[in-house]
């Protein structure tokens, strides 16, 4: 319903400086949701769940912005924060993957206790201060800037390009710097290895030590999954069929598996015929 509320600024016009029932309802629904999202983020073991909880909080906050007569900011919040920033977080989480779950054990002695006490203390102080300082505040409301002169978006744009022009330009420099910095950090290692040319790939394939194409996963295997390695005619695992991307540790684990299956760990497989161990 908040959307409808927003869509009709005419309603808020008459009751600008007070909070309407609709807004109160929206607040009492979204506020606890935001808090729940924050708490969920705090307590979720899995980092992806944390991120999702945070998305909930951010969406709630975005809607709260709209309710608070800042429709543009509300949607920017959704687009930028949930659409871009949190998506980036999810991206990185999925790339990092393996480490996304926190261990339950706290290694720093007293950290949790101290953090809880300090957090409660901080919240108490701020809430107390706000409660004392802002009891008698009468909000002016944004009806005037939101209705005159092109509305909320136009007025924000005007502020950005007049009063805040210099900071605005600075943010552009900041963004460019950040983009370049991120590229430098992210591409640092990749720039070293050069891509193989078509010719090299061809020569590798036809003149390498294994004529023909590499074995695909699942060949001669019991399952048709990418995680299942190909087997050589004698039943041993074909090392080349394991993907680095799919399962980072598979190759490391393979040696153990081979040893386990063979019993000795040193039983020669088919490759021994070629002089490899």
């Amino acid at each position: 319903m908040s959307l409808t509320l927003l869509a009709q600024p005419g309603i808020t016009q008459q009751v600008a400086d007070t909070v309407t029932t609709g807004e109160a309802v929206a607040f009492w629904v979204l506020g606890p949701l935001a808090l729940a999202g924050a708490l969920g983020m705090l307590f979720a073991r899995n980092a992806v769940h944390s991120a999702l909880w945070l998305v909930l909080t951010m969406l709630s906050l975005g809607v709260l912005y709209m309710v608070q007569q800042a429709p543009f900011l509300g949607f920017v919040q959704i687009i930028v924060y949930t659409g871009a920033i949190m998506m980036l977080f999810l991206f990185v989480l999925m790339l990092v993957g393996r480490d996304s779950s926190d261990s339950v054990v706290e290694v720093l002695r007293g950290q949790r206790f101290a953090a809880t006490v300090l957090g409660i203390g901080f919240a108490g102080l701020v809430v107390g201060a706000l409660g004392r300082a802002l009891t008698d505040v009468t909000p002016v409301g944004l009806v005037t800037p939101n209705t005159t002169n092109g509305g909320n978006v136009a007025n924000i744009g005007q502020l950005l390009f007049t009063d805040y022009l210099f900071p605005f330009e600075l943010t552009s420099a900041l963004l460019i710097t950040a983009a370049i910095g991120a590229m430098v950090l992210a591409f640092a290692s990749r720039a070293k290895q050069t891509r193989k040319t078509q010719r090299e790939l061809v020569e590798e394939r036809f003149r390498g030590e294994r004529p023909g194409s590499l074995p695909g996963p699942g060949v001669f295997a019991t399952a048709n999954s990418v995680a299942t390695p190909a087997l050589l005619p004698d039943g041993s695992v074909a090392r080349e069929s394991l993907s680095e991307i799919v399962e980072p540790t598979a190759k490391e684990r393979l040696d153990d598996d081979v040893a386990e299956v063979s019993g000795t760990g040193h039983r020669p497989d088919a490759r021994a015929l070629k002089g490899e161990s």
Binding site: L3, L6, A7, P9, L59, P71, F72, F75, V76, I78, I79, T82, G83, A84, M87, G151, N152, V153
Partner: peptide, 15 residues
């Protein structure tokens, strides 16, 4: 009809 209607579509697609 929101004053930021186009943003709604973009926001929805990003969500």
């Amino acid at each position: 009809d929101l004053p930021v209607g186009v943003l709604v579509v973009l926001a929805c697609s990003s969500v």
